[in-house]
Nucleic acid binder design. Structure first.
Lengths: 201, 201
DNA sequence: ACAATAATATACCAATCGGTAATTAAATTT
DNA sequence: AAATTTAATTACCGATTGGTATATTATTGT
């Protein structure tokens, strides 16, 4: 489908963009943005530093691409779940589950939440991308809550945008606790208590 | 009281230990443990690096002393407040106030909470000191809650130690949000909602 | 006066950081 | 075959990191 007749001039590219982004994502996820150097990424990805710079321009450019990748691979399923028509309670429980369960073979915690926490230290492109995701996340929570209100599944006297921010706060905190090695059960108990403020009596 | 007759041999010490700890504390507090180098501390404190190493042994040793200082100067008043006989509600409001207000001229957020969040990156002495403070903090919360239970000011069906951990979580989160520049009012609103789970009806 | 002691300051160490200049290799166009 | 274009590699840059070896300075004991 892509055997374009237009042959490109010059030495053909062997740089594996997707693989490099994957390696960088896992490193940032495991060790945090402060704990990873470009040299380490290059070595693990089997890529030279100038190649990486020609592809992404800077560390900032690479981080931005990592964030975009993380969103589509990891966050998007959560977004989809929140847009699905299930009952508020069921989806809330799913949300708690998604934010506390540990995936074997995958890093603990959430790369987006970690980077959001270090936002002030990051550069422009990465920061902008964080803000885009954060905005979309809050909007998704808000819409979810508004639908729940229409169904009488959510207290009408609580402002939707504040509730969205509150949920985002609690989920983010849980993710960070998880990354720090807190126990899953303790983590889940805290979340359930914090979210019980939305219970309808 | 200390004009000991025993005169010390060798060149008299001019190294200002307290001043150096103060400078280091403010730097760590403002910029985070990852964002501060020993060189920076030495330059700002007007101290040579070998002097600092002879006094504290290592970066780890300095951080431990900084934490001890932070506890006695900043955290201890909170501990005292929680041990005071005021009503639970009043002290809870004071606690929210203490964890959200901004002190002009002082760094935002809480150094202890920041370091606790980076615990896995820190070295042994510092980590041990963090754990000591954390244990004392949770114990203080627990005792406070137990006294409130006896006075009928706290729901008896909630485990005290879990509640202590919950409060610690929420306060720590608020401190971090504050350090990241979140608005005080938003921050306070989240805290009040999260702690409303302890309301007696 | 002179040795012993303790604290200071200068200058350095190897390692690492993000980033790049200069060269070489592989393809297409003419 | 030669010129052109694009990518990859090597080797480097200055700055900074935590940490130290060495020399100097200031005091006391003899």
């Amino acid at each position: 489908m892509q055997q374009e007749t237009k042959k490109k001039r010059g030495r053909p590219k062997t740089f594996d963009r997707e693989h490099t982004i994957t390696i960088a994502m896992n490193l940032y996820w495991c060790k945090g943005v402060d704990g990873v150097s470009l040299n380490e990424i290059c070595n693990l990805a089997g890529v030279s530093k100038p190649s990486l710079y020609r592809e992404f321009g800077s560390e900032d450019g690479l981080m931005k691409e990592v964030l975009i990748r993380y969103r589509s691979k990891i966050l998007e399923p959560v977004f989809e779940m929140l847009k699905s028509p299930g009952s508020f309670r069921i989806n809330l429980n799913r949300l708690i589950e998604l934010n506390t369960e540990e995936h074997p073979g995958m890093p603990k915690g959430c790369l987006f939440v970690k980077m959001r926490g270090d936002k002030l230290k990051l550069e422009t492109e990465t920061r902008k991308q964080i803000e885009v995701i954060q905005r979309d996340l809050l909007a998704t929570y808000s819409e979810w809550i508004n639908r729940a209100k229409l169904n009488g599944e959510f207290p009408g006297n609580i402002d939707s945008e504040f509730a969205a921010s509150y949920i985002s706060s609690q989920m983010g905190f849980a993710r960070n606790q998880q990354a720090r090695g807190e126990s899953v059960s303790q983590n889940r108990a805290v979340l359930e208590m914090a979210l019980s403020v939305f219970d309808m009596e």
